[in-house]
Structures are given as C-alpha cells and as structure tokens.
C-alpha cells in the first residue's frame, strides 16, 4: 500500500521544477512516459513536468494520479511563475481564488494552512498576456490543475503557489530558465514550510482513512466476507481507541472464525464503560 505522507507536484516548466527536484532529492522515473516524472526515494513526493497551458496541466495531473498510484490522502501542489500588475517581482503568493478567463468559472482552494505569505487571486488565461491591468496574478495552468486535482483530493489538500516573474516593470521577454529557477530557489524555504504542513495533513488523513494495520493481520488469519470486513474495520477502530492495540490479537487469538472474532470484539465494546477521566 502507498504510505503517508503523499505529496504530488504538478509544475509547468523544467526550470521551475529544478530547485524542488534538487531540494527533495528526486530522481527521474522510467523513460518513455508521456510527461517527465520524478520521485524521491521514499515515493512520498512525486513531481510531473506538464508543459505550458491548461490542457497539458490537466492531462499531467491525471497522468500523475495514475502513474504514482496517488492515494486519497495525497496533497497536490501546483507551483510556478506568474505575471502580476503590482511591482512585486520575486514575491511568492499563496492563491486562494482562481478564475478561468475562458469560462469565468471560479474556484477556491482551501485556506487552512498557517502562513504569513501574501495571498492573491489568480487568473488563468489561454494565451500569454502582457496586459497586467487585472488585480490578479496571471498564469496559464492554475485553474485546469485545480479542476483536475479536486477530483482526487479535498480543497484543503490543494495548494497553488505562484512567484511573480513579470509585470509592467519586469518584462516577460527577458526571463531565462536560469532566472526562473532562481525565482523558485529564492523562495524554497517558504515553499517547503508549507509542504511540511501538507505532509502532516496527509498523514492525518491517512490515519483517519486507513484502518489500523492489525485489521489486515486479522483478515489474513480468518476469512471475512466483504460486509464482515467492513464491520471488522469499524470494530477494530472502536476497540483500539479504548483498549491497547497490542492486546487485540491476544484477545481474539482463540476464536474459531470471523463471526466469533466479530462477536468477541462487539461484546467487549457493549460492556465497556468509557472512563472519561482517563481519555
């Protein structure tokens, strides 16, 4: 089973991805894939380079979901450069509202992370733009990334970060891959600070969603039907929240079959009086 935490990065340009790949010591995955994919050695962080534009970003998000076997507790990050009308070259922004220029649809990523980073709306456009009159960051992927990733994760596990790379005073034409990498690298500590928070949330989600390991051991020892498996997961959760998990196997080891395992655990809980002074 894929473990926790699980973080998935969708990045448009190789130059944007480079500082992240280096910092997290990711390596390229097998060749011959539709998009370049990197992963760290624990298979906790996966990164895909999507290329520019909404359709590539959406396709890459779906592709990474499939190729990395992304579990439901994965957090998804889209990071990249963006234009901005205000003179804030190099500043990292957390996006909390995304508007699609094409459809006018609006999306709101979650805002539960603790951060002092400045926040902004993001306008996702289909063609490069040098008109910075909108009071929004401007990119070419954000909305499509959100639309694709929200199918796999809750809003609270989606993070969009943009570094200002161009604006009225900083021309987009003079951007080079080196400059782009530096923009990301200069903000890497702030980026990783947020990623650490996402890792914790991803772990919490894992603990919430996945029944304790001992459920699998029990299922291997006795044969359970599908509905019994479901019942067992719930009973083990309830049992281990008030009795020590280490004693569970001891408790049921002499049971003959799945039915008696279930009734033994049910009986314990039925007779259990929560000691509120000790919880």
């Amino acid at each position: 089973m894929v473990g926790a935490p699980a973080i998935r990065w969708v990045v448009a340009l190789k130059s944007e991805a480079k500082p992240i790949i280096q910092k997290l010591q990711m390596l390229p995955m097998k060749k011959g894939m539709d998009f370049p994919i990197y992963s760290d050695k624990n298979r906790c962080h996966w990164l895909i380079i999507s290329g520019v534009g909404q359709s590539r970003s959406a396709a890459a998000t779906n592709y990474l979901h499939r190729e990395s076997d992304a579990p439901p507790w994965s957090a998804w990050i889209n990071i990249g450069i963006a234009g901005y009308g205000y003179d804030s070259y190099g500043v990292l922004y957390l996006v909390d509202k995304i508007v699609s220029e094409e459809t006018n649809f609006v999306a709101y990523p979650g805002v539960a992370l603790a951060t002092k980073l400045p926040r902004s709306e993001l306008l996702t456009v289909n063609k490069p733009r040098v008109d910075y009159s909108e009071p929004s960051l401007i990119d070419m992927e954000g909305y499509a990334f959100y639309e694709a990733a929200i199918k796999f994760a809750s809003r609270e596990l989606l993070l969009l970060l943009k570094v200002v790379s161009d604006g009225p005073k900083s021309k987009v034409k003079i951007l080079t891959p080196k400059k782009i990498s530096k923009l990301i690298l200069d903000n890497i500590e702030n980026i990783l600070g947020l990623v650490r928070q996402l890792e914790n949330l991803s772990k919490l989600e894992f603990d919430r969603v996945i029944p304790p390991d001992i459920c699998n051991q029990i299922k291997q020892k006795w044969h359970f039907t599908v509905s019994q498996k479901h019942q067992l997961n719930i009973l083990v959760r309830r049992w281990t929240s008030v009795f020590p998990e280490t004693k569970l196997f001891q408790k049921i080891k002499n049971q003959n079959n799945s039915k008696s395992v279930i009734s033994s655990l049910s009986k314990d809980l039925d007779e259990y009086e929560v000691d509120w002074g000790k919880t």
Binding site: G110, V111, A112, L113, A114, I150, A153, S154, R155, E156, L157, L201, L204, E205, R208
Partner: peptide, 10 residues
C-alpha cells in the same frame, strides 16, 4: 470535496 476536520483547525 471539503475536509471538515482540516477546516475545523482554521
């Protein structure tokens, strides 16, 4: 696709 438990923290 909202996470009540995470939202509750902030």
């Amino acid at each position: 696709n909202q996470n009540f438990r995470i939202q509750k923290s902030k």
